[in-house]
Nucleic acid binder design. Sequence first.
RNA 1: GCCGUCAUAGCUCAGUGGCAGAGCGCCUGUCUUGUAAACAGGAAGUCGUGAGUUCAACCCUCACUGGCGGCUCCA
Length: 603
Amino acid sequence: MSNQRYEDTQLYRIRHSLAHIMAQAVLERFPEAHIAIGPPIEDGFYYDFELPEAITDEDLKAIEVRMKKIISGKHAFNVREVTPEEAREVFAKQPYKLELINDLVEGRVDDNGNKIAEPASSLTIYTQDKFTDLCRGPHVANTSEINANAFSIRVRPPAGAYWRGDEKRQQLTRLYGTGWETPEQLQEHIHRLEEARRRDHRVLGEKLELFIISPLVGKGLPLWLPNGAILRDTLERWLRGVQVDNGYLPVVTPHIGNLNLYKTSGHYPYYKDSQYTPIDVDGEEYMLKPMNCPHHIMIYKSAMRSYKELPIRYAEFGTVYRYEQSGELTGLTRVRGFTVDDAHLFVTPEQLLEEFKTVVKLVQFVFESLGLSDFRARVGIRDPKSDKYVGDDAAWEQASSAIIQAVQELGLPYNVEEGEAAFYGPKLDFIVRDVLGRSWQLGTVKVDYNLPERFELEYVDADNSRKRPVMIHRAPFGSMERFTGILIEHFAGQFPAWLAPVQAVVIPIRPEHDNYAQQVQAHLKAQGMRVNADLRDKNMRNKIKEHRQMSIPWLLIVGDKDIENNTVSVRLRTDEDLGAIPLADFTTLAKSLIESHSMEIKA
RNA sequence: GCCGUCAUAGCUCAGUGGCAGAGCGCCUGUCUUGUAAACAGGAAGUCGUGAGUUCAACCCUCACUGGCGGCUCCA
């Protein structure tokens, strides 16, 4: 990979130019259409249109054919500098362009009215063939630089998109295209999409019998089937153990709580829109728990705390409920009820930095143990221009600098993003890249001076004075639902043996081998393994096929020779045949691979 | 929530304005198999729900529900 900025690459110019060519073809087909904007994006480009009617597949085919024709016309991309007046004339029939021209002339401002660009006295327009667009560029010099067989506008379907990303404004039709330098790169891209679809956790979740979502239960409310529950429970028990080793204390809190609790914490007013309507209980209002922190805080507050007790680390796999817009729900990765591997640490200000670093190291350990070794950190600080945050500036400054100091001392790659903080404090998010190179926001660690303030938390210091503790909120997995969904895709359902819902299946060759198969199963079960013996009245080949499709790590075929020699014939889910292995040797091998959380299923 | 799109057996999917289809799975029987699909028979559907058009609707129209692709949002 080069360090060249995307904006400076030939690929960027190709995609930007393809967007213009698409706009030309669309305007030829729908002369009354209005054009909005059309930038290059990852893997391709899009262009937003206001169209007189819904676009059909026939239209897309025709537009694509026309685009190829335009490209083969070897048209130059001509840039011209124009005055705002000229530009307004050129785009007299294009209201979105006129709005853009006005904004450019007046200088760009952000949502809070702050200037982010100087007013422009002249603008640039690009023309190819018979199409002219308001554009900063850059473009290819001539359409002959574009390979007409290295793009497609039918890989990704048309979608709705709000003008300028504002849901209160006109919704436009966004046409997506993917564009590359060579047809081979286009094919590779299509293969990557197919691979992602093959790994889709919603598809694998059904095939591997991990979870279902039933409309009668409710959207965004997944039901975990036994296989999925074993996977999730294995992760939970492991993390629980790791946390006990690191001085965390378990707590358990209920699923609803008095509305006043969330008013005190500040969650209720701030997140009103993403919480469920309060439930009336004997004239008092109760809420489905949107977060665990207020409950843990009340546990802290239930006794007078000495500095000698701190840090106190309360951990709970706490289930929370949040209202998400229906269009946002996706399998396990975006749901309305989910379990956070939550913990809240109460520390003295002096302990904060060290404790924060220890927490970050724990999160790193968790990811690396699961083969998610490609991750970076994002420091989310508040947007200085927004008023949606609570607490005074000094506390925010203190917390933000503690986080940045910690990641620097740990040598973690990170970047700082404004506006990514929680309402009560800055945070450190872990952005993990999976095997397909996709990024996911998983674990999160936050420093919080505000909730201790709001709840008036105290501890007694060595000089007998009352001091205020600092809180650290942290969740390595984030949500058990999302994390499991991502693991399914990361491993494509081929989980490491320690996580596999069923680790081995014993398959007798004929019914007279059933007895031995059961003995093998009992032996391995006694060693703590999750093993089934498949004694159904079915063809052995059928059984192999079926369990192979379920990605069972080890298939143990047993017949006359195995009974005679006390062996199992091991077939891996990779289709590798390890041949007959003494049962004792297989047991030792499997146990050691499971206990070490190995990513391998053979020695 | 908004735009688009889809909904036929447990699953994957054909199908036509005039009697509802296949493969897999499931059930029964036969077969008794050394590494990815043995053979035969059978059960299984209010064609997502509700209206409308029509002599007649699974098919056409509308609404609703749910899935999917995006947008917006995401503690």
